[in-house]
Each structure stands twice: as structure tokens, then as C-alpha cells.
Simulated scan of single mutants.
Amino acid sequence: MSSLNSTIMYPSIFILIGIPGLEDLHYWIAIPFCFFYIIALIGNAAIVSVVTTTSSLHEPMFIFLSILALNDIFFCTSIVPKMLGIFWFNFKEINFDACLAQMFFIHLFTGTESGILVAMAFDRYVAICNPLRYTSIMTTNLIAKIGMLVVIRPAVLVAPFLFLIKQFSFYKTNVISHSYCDHMAVVKLIEADTRINSVYGLFVAFFVIGIDIILITVSYVMIFRAVFSLPSKEARLKAFSTCTPHICVFLMLYGLALFSFLSHRVGKNITSYIHILLSDLYLLLPPTLNPIVYGVKTKQIRERAFMLIFPWKSVSFKN
């Protein structure tokens, strides 16, 4: 391990500390993290399986949901195995290029998740506000274009992170006080003026998360206006029920993101391990809870999942 006080030129490896200040508890912290990971893998894989094998679920809403579930599987896998290696086996070293790759994929999957939520909000807007034109608007061609866009947008925006970091040669240390290769955690190690990196990081955060929050909020404001104008109470409740899972996921993801963001930039008196735990939970909880939220709140998913698990039983669930 390199010294904390010596300047390093082109470090070949980084050392991930894990959660600074809680090293003695790493073994126990890893247990719920591992549990979350297993639930995320099983739950999201079940959603992908249910949607892809059920022809009646080949609708835009469920297609976007399966894309979200697939993204969450890759998202968790890009961070949790390395975390568990740090916490349980003290495997703290990570190759420089592997660190940059992890950084890229974390931000790619985060941006993709946000983009999918925008697509799902747009789908619900069209379904509720323009029901007669729904099939003509939400075509297979449009869904494919949206799917490509939600992946290409973060990929294009995140790629410069790697080039901006690669241009620097000298580092204060190769020890990262984090449990994964966070962009700003790596930038803080650089022995040079990194204002461009910081400004570009804020630009990407606003362009992806900020704009997406605005688009989703506007969509749901228009959806609620349309719902409240429906004459039947039953119709209003049905419309709300189709939006409830999306709203829960939206509030969870962006609530955690905002809390984590503010704790890093405003909560200067908060101890470092609280920052790291918030960052870890921000990445881990949404992929874990998404399939639970959609499984519980979406009747078609519940029924089909039950039939796959217990094929000899025929049940009918009520909302």
C-alpha cells in the first residue's frame, strides 16, 4: 500500500477503504448488503422473466419495467461483489482501469435508471391523458428509440469523466476513502487543479437528474389534472393505481439522491461514514426495492409471478 503522504505518478492500483471509521463493523455491514443484493437479483430477474414470457405483458409499461429490472441487475453487480470482497475478505485493491470502468458503469446505470423513469412517466401520461391515441403514439419503433436514448445519453455524458481523469499524472495518494470508485472520490486524490472535473460533474448531474426530475414532475402534474377531471370515482382510483408504483419508485430514487447530494455538500458536520453509507444505500436500495414495489402494486405482475411459482394453482388477485 502506498503512503498517504507521498505523491504518486500514474498509480497502477487504488485502495478502496470501504467505510472509513467503521472498519471493525465491515463484516456485519456486509450481511444486509449481501441480502439486499440477493433480493435485487432474484426480484429483478423474476420481473424480466415474467414480462418476457407473458405475451399479455408485452405492452410499453411492462417493457420499460423489464428494461428497468435488467438495468438494476447490472447496476448491483457493478458495485456489490467488490464491496463484499472489501468487507469480508479485505480485497481492497482495484486496478486503475478497473476503477475507471466501475465509475463509468455506476454513472451509466444511474443515468439509465433515471431515463427509464422518465420514459415510464411519459407512458403513463399518454395512457391517461391521451388514451384514444395511446397505441398510435406508443409504437414499437418509438419504444426502441426511447430505449436506445436512455442508454446513449448517460454513456455520452459520462465518457468524458474518464478522459478528464486520465489527463492527470500525479495523485496525492492512491487510497480512496470510499467503498466503490466514485467520480468525485477519485478526483479529490488528484494533485492538480480539478475545477473542470467538478464543474462538469455538476453539469452532468443537472443535465441527467435535474432535467429528469422536472420532466417527471410535469408529467405527473398533467396526469393528476387529467385524473381529477374524470367523472367516475372508480375511474380515478384505477388511473391512480397504475401510477402508484412509478410514483413510489420516483420518490425513493430521487429522495435518496437528493439526501445523499445534500449530505455531501451541505452537511459538513456529518461524519464521513454517514456520507459513505448514504451513498451506498442510494445505489443499493432502489434496485432492491423496485421489484418489490412493482410486484406488490401491479396486479398483472403479482398474478403471473404466482402462477410461475405455483403453476398447479389458479388464483385471482384483487387490487
Results as ranks from 00 to 15, higher is better:
residue 201 G to P: 00
residue 227 V to I: 15
residue 164 L to R: 00
residue 40 A to N: 12
residue 106 I to R: 00
residue 162 L to C: 04
residue 317 F to N: 06
residue 171 Y to K: 04
residue 18 G to R: 00
residue 86 I to Q: 08
residue 291 P to I: 04
residue 259 F to K: 04
residue 53 T to R: 15
residue 189 L to I: 03
residue 304 R to L: 01
residue 299 K to E: 07
residue 167 Q to T: 09
residue 259 F to H: 10
residue 115 G to S: 03
residue 37 Y to R: 00
residue 189 L to S: 02
residue 215 L to K: 04
residue 164 L to I: 01
residue 238 K to G: 15
residue 60 P to D: 08
residue 276 I to C: 06
residue 93 E to G: 09
residue 195 R to A: 12
residue 66 S to F: 02
residue 31 I to N: 03
residue 61 M to Q: 11
residue 78 S to F: 02
residue 13 I to L: 09
residue 244 T to H: 06
residue 259 F to Y: 12
residue 65 L to G: 01
residue 215 L to N: 04
residue 31 I to R: 04
residue 149 L to R: 10
residue 26 H to W: 05
residue 101 A to K: 07
residue 155 A to T: 08
residue 167 Q to P: 02
residue 318 K to T: 12
residue 277 L to N: 12
residue 149 L to M: 15
residue 34 C to A: 14
residue 50 V to N: 01
residue 120 M to K: 13
residue 89 F to S: 07
residue 308 L to T: 04
residue 185 A to L: 01
residue 2 S to N: 12
residue 237 L to H: 10
residue 115 G to C: 04
residue 183 H to I: 00
residue 241 S to Q: 14
residue 166 K to H: 07
residue 230 L to F: 13
residue 144 A to F: 14
residue 299 K to W: 00
residue 135 T to M: 10
residue 157 L to H: 02
residue 295 G to D: 08
residue 12 S to R: 15
residue 167 Q to E: 13
residue 274 I to F: 10
residue 61 M to V: 03
residue 30 A to D: 09
residue 53 T to G: 08
residue 22 L to I: 01
residue 230 L to V: 10
residue 86 I to L: 11
residue 128 I to G: 04
residue 62 F to W: 13
residue 15 I to F: 14
residue 98 A to I: 02
residue 14 F to P: 00
residue 269 N to G: 05
residue 74 F to D: 00
residue 222 M to R: 15
residue 52 T to P: 00
residue 161 F to M: 07
residue 58 H to I: 04
residue 98 A to R: 07
residue 88 W to D: 10
residue 279 S to A: 14
residue 267 G to R: 05
residue 147 G to F: 09
residue 21 G to F: 06
residue 300 Q to M: 11
residue 90 N to V: 02
residue 227 V to R: 02
residue 148 M to R: 13
residue 93 E to W: 05
residue 82 K to Y: 08
residue 253 L to W: 04
residue 262 L to Q: 06
residue 224 F to W: 14
residue 2 S to H: 10
residue 290 N to A: 14
residue 236 R to H: 03
residue 66 S to M: 11
residue 305 A to W: 03
residue 243 C to W: 02
residue 55 S to E: 14
residue 8 I to R: 05
residue 212 D to K: 04
residue 9 M to W: 08
residue 50 V to F: 01
residue 307 M to Q: 12
residue 47 I to K: 01
residue 238 K to P: 00
residue 217 T to V: 13
residue 208 V to A: 01
residue 108 L to V: 01
residue 50 V to L: 02
residue 13 I to S: 13
residue 186 V to T: 08
residue 247 I to K: 09
residue 154 P to Q: 08
residue 9 M to Y: 14
residue 114 S to A: 14
residue 293 V to L: 14
residue 23 E to D: 15
residue 233 K to S: 15
residue 159 A to C: 13
residue 49 S to I: 06
residue 26 H to K: 05
residue 88 W to R: 09
residue 257 A to V: 08
residue 317 F to D: 08
residue 15 I to D: 12
residue 38 I to S: 11
residue 1 M to V: 06
residue 282 Y to G: 04
